[in-house]
Write a protein that binds this DNA or RNA. Structure first.
Lengths: 364, 364
DNA sequence: CTGAAAGCGCTAACAC
DNA sequence: GTGTTAGCGCTTTCAG
């Protein structure tokens, strides 16, 4: 390696001594801070030769804009807060991916906080993000009726998008899917194939372990899916005994218990609608324990596509939701609101039922 | 609702007019900014009665510390940059969950950027995070030998933790798992059960679609797993024909093709080691197409636990890695480095082989 | 076209 | 115990 001599400036750039500031660049280029800022920021009028001198100086000093100072001065952090239940859950992971990428496209950074659907943690998360002075907020609300913390965040409350779930009495934008139709479609498919005993495995955190009554604090997606299923059932003149619907937390042991308790009924359902991946897995676990075969003894439809659902035998039929699009829409709506001061809007995306092999025919 | 009269201050707090600043609190409490700061920040000496007046004023004005100003003044953002391949991938999602939570426990906020294992995007991500003046950096490096961008970040290069993968010639902390042993254990189990024709399905992005030679740019986890498998094979005096190992991108169609090309060989392997969930799913897809049954015609072991792996029939045997612990260790190490200026360290966590039902016995 | 200077909101010496 | 003040690094009028 050539033993080149480095100027003191250059050495500072190489090592981590102290990041160069605008004024250092200005001095090296023999201009004022204002001119340096203009040259680097690409605004205002700067002479060509001056601009080049500044750029060269910045390069030489390895200058990096201090975003913190910029944010302070400008009153914009270019950051967006994201409050979700659990990023390790596949639904939220996919949504987060969309949010992060779309934020980046618009020059924003996403700050993500997990709440595990705990309202206390949600309130705390919003507080923290407000202190960080995020320019906007995307929230997956954990409770359908707590909205105080979302109203009390000053200007942020007009830069707020609710994702996946609606909440009462909150004038904010929402991005949701038409889960009621999704559930209807699923149940109607069961019915068309001759199933009359249809069970519901419903994910919710508003319950201690698992139970048979709709929890008072169930979020809108839960309510919509149950309502959609009930609708289809009612129109077909079918019963939905309490014992066939189970509201449950979504850890595998609990879900398995819940599924077992449905499948242990006499008579037992021949079909199960699972409201998410975890519910489907629990149903599979229960079937395994009982020696029941999916697609033969038990028909299954699950909300949300999983990597494995089309690969199993039988392949699992699912109600697909456009998760990536949801995340993307949340960000674009939010950014529009931040920039334009436009009115909140409600976006509802369609679901699509993908029929594979897990719903066998009973009419034959 | 009671028609209470609000003071002008209170109304401002209710609406989003303009966030209260420290000086507003100070004025309302009739003290100086310094005293207000001390009272609120809980440091220095403040009279009891004064403290109460300040707290009350802050409450009344709905005062929120401005984190941006604090960061600027203190020279610490309390933010940590996280550069990963893809947060919607289950491995990274779990790691991210651990990172975010552990960050929060230490008072830090995680800023996450996806690279899709593209080195150009990784370089850009590091640049952006450096501008944001993050206090530390966690990187899952996408290339084993690009390290310039990680050296050129000034003081940040001493506040850097490499997660999941090592890279050459970089004096940074690393948090990895003992993947070599993991692969060894898996292959040894195959061998113990009488399998002699063992295939490898290896996930990598350093290849166009799928091929049979170790890509020059494969990351350390890929190298380690292949090396571990080869070791076990060699010690048992077994061959690993090129045709039985496939390096592939991890989208389902490509993986399925790769798996098909292994399973189309004559003779074909009776066992497959999949280096991640996506590889296992691809193997399952291929088996499905060929009418082969896992656990009967083809033995399968996969790296990383999946929600569904223990629930299938047969249940899939896996090489578990302590993903949450990895994320947690990355953050604790990093925080120690930020706070203490301690030397970089290499942490290697063990893997554990969980034998379930997907490795059938050929010795009978 | 370029420079001087004010100030974003906060903390931490340093006085009193 | 409490107040005064000097900046952190940047942008942005306002002069020249």
């Amino acid at each position: 390696m050539a033993n080149t001599t480095l100027s003191s400036d250059e050495r500072e750039a190489e090592e981590g001594s102290r990041p160069a500031r605008l004024i250092d660049v200005a001095r090296l280029a023999k201009v004022s801070r204002a001119t340096a800022a203009r040259a680097l920021g690409g605004y205002g009028f700067v002479g060509n030769e001056t601009r080049e001198r500044v750029t060269a100086a910045a390069q030489k000093l390895n200058y990096r804009l201090n975003e913190v100072a910029r944010a302070m001065r400008a009153g914009k952090t270019l950051a967006i807060g994201v409050v979700i239940a659990d990023i390790s859950n596949s639904f939220f992971a996919a949504a987060a991916r969309a949010i992060i990428d779309t934020c980046a496209e618009h020059g924003y950074q996403a700050l993500i906080i997990n709440t595990d659907d705990d309202i206390a943690r949600e309130i705390e998360a919003v507080r923290v993000l407000a202190e960080k002075r995020v320019d906007g907020l995307i929230v997956v609300p954990s409770s359908p009726d707590h909205n105080d913390h979302l109203r009390r965040v000053g200007e942020l409350s007009s830069r707020l998008v609710l994702l996946d779930r609606r909440i009462t009495d909150m004038p904010a934008s929402t991005v949701t899917t038409d889960d009621r139709s999704g559930a209807r479609d699923a149940v109607e498919l069961f019915i068309a194939r001759g199933h009359t005993r249809i069970g519901l495995l419903v994910s919710t955190v508003a319950v201690r372990s698992h139970g048979t009554t709709l929890p008072r604090r169930a979020v809108s997606t839960v309510r919509d899916r149950v309502a959609g299923a009930r609708e289809a059932l009612r129109e077909a003149g079918l019963e939905l005994p309490n014992a066939w619907v189970r509201y449950t937390r979504n850890d595998l042991p609990t879900v398995t218990q819940a599924a077992l308790s449905i499948l242990g009924m006499e008579p037992r359902p021949t079909a199960i609608l699972a409201t998410c991946e975890e519910m489907a897995v629990g149903a599979m676990a229960a079937c395994r324990e009982l020696g029941l075969t999916i697609g033969k003894d038990i028909a299954l439809i699950s909300f949300d596509e999983s990597p494995w659902s089309r690969v199993l035998t039988p392949a699992i039929s699912v109600v697909q939701r456009p998760i990536y699009e949801m995340g993307r829409a949340a960000v674009t709506t939010l950014v529009r609101q931040i920039r334009g001061g436009v009115a909140p809007q409600a976006i509802e995306l369609p679901t699509v039922l993908v029929d594979r092999e897990s719903v066998f025919d009973l009419t034959g």
